[in-house]
Design a protein around this nucleic acid. Structure first.
Lengths: 233, 233
DNA sequence: CTCTAATTGTTTACAGTGTTTACATTTTAT
DNA sequence: ATAAAATGTAAACACTGTAAACAATTAGAG
């Protein structure tokens, strides 16, 4: 049972975080300010310390929330496709990844860009961060299990050093084969690279307004390399 | 002819920048502080304003220097390979890109990560930034001109929207074909993605100490996709 | 060489930041 | 009703970037 005080506390925590997100969206993650949050909430800065030990603790909580929201966006895009349409699911999460970043640039940079000055990554965010990666890994894993990953897997074998490294992960609970893990990492790197360069505005000079065509074309290329789509979509 | 005062001024500017780099290397780019620089130099903070209009002007100068040093590293790696060894040059700049980032994490994140709080990208850095991209584009362009880019170019044509966008760039002085420009962008995205995820420590949990094997394997895959290397190296 | 002007630096000050300490107030539980 | 816990504020400290006023040094012209 939740007492009145506990409800108030939770609601205050929510207000702190939503105010923080509002300011991150307006001014960027780097200029997050406890005092500004308190000011906008109509209280003084030291009062926030009753809810978060220090600024880093708030940043950690925001990171966890953002990763969870990011993962939820990927999962919902994935679930909009039938489970046996592996190519469709791959496209869906690829587009969702990029579009979530494009729609929430400050949030994405908060997750995958240099965080706050002096912030040290807390181990608490690990599970939430891995959850988003697991979406991609899961789609590739199920495609592999269904025998639909005919492409790049076999054409160029993994070097033994990577092979044994991935096998070691399996012994610690990684639920997919070395090939799937490796492909998920490389696909992640590609999509993150495009999204990241886009958000830093390094691509606009080359692509003009054709960013959407660019990402779609690259996803299609990846899908073909993986052997997911054999014919034109 | 350079007067004594001008030499002093230049030497002070160099000291400011080198002190800034030292502190960026130690504490990260986000916690760059004019006062700390002045303190370490044995002067007071307002004195720095005789050399840079504000902190953003210093950041801009540092960005230009870092891009130039980055480009120089890529160019020197490229020139260590004979001009007709296109595959070798591709590997060389790919490895040099990643290794420069791994060896200078704070510098790389300074260039391709969220910069300083509230910093607005100045147009002055454009030329220095493009120079590094031109190294990659140049290697692919010369390979294409020599007919050594047999791979992915033809297997999947560019969509017309991208094709015409790249052609428009050509009319504004872009010295390479649409295919070369597009491939250079995608290769850049891949290498940047891997480097970026590596520097944010998102890969260590998966790859352990096998980061070098990972990047080499991915470069080899890229090289094959481009048709640069047809047989084992 | 002298005088003027530009350059370089310091001192002081203001507004902003994260954080700590001490204190007051409110709410809960005994 | 009383003791304890929770929540907030006020004041202070050590930082930050930046602006204004002032002093010292240096360069060039007469």
């Amino acid at each position: 049972m939740t007492t009145r005080r506990e409800r108030n506390r939770l609601s205050t925590i929510e207000e702190i975080k939503s105010t923080a997100w509002k300011q991150i969206g307006e001014l960027g993650a780097a200029s997050l300010s406890l005092r500004a949050i308190a000011r906008e909430m109509g209280m003084t800065a030291p009062g926030l310390y009753r809810y978060y030990a220090d600024r880093d603790a708030l940043v950690t909580a925001l990171l966890i929330d953002a990763f969870d929201s990011f993962s939820a966006a990927l999962e919902s895009a994935r679930d909009a496709c039938p489970a046996d349409d592996h190519a469709g699911r791959f496209f869906a999460i690829g587009r969702a990844y990029f579009q979530w970043g494009a729609a929430n640039p400050q949030k994405y940079l908060f997750l995958f860009g240099t965080p706050i000055s002096g912030y040290q990554f807390s181990g608490e965010v690990g599970p939430s961060a891995q959850r988003s990666f697991l979406v991609l890994q899961g789609v590739l894993g199920e495609a592999a299990a269904a025998g639909k990953l005919s492409g790049a897997v076999s054409t160029l074998g993994l070097p033994t050093s990577l092979q044994s490294q991935y096998e070691m992960l399996g012994q610690y609970g990684m639920p997919y084969t070395p090939e799937v893990t490796h492909l998920a990492l490389t696909v992640w790197a590609v999509i993150h690279g495009i999204t990241s360069l886009h958000l830093y505005n390094y691509l606009a000079g080359f692509l003009g307004g054709q960013m959407g065509a660019f990402i779609d074309h690259e996803l299609e290329k990846l899908s073909r390399q993986l052997g997911l789509s054999q014919e034109n979509p």
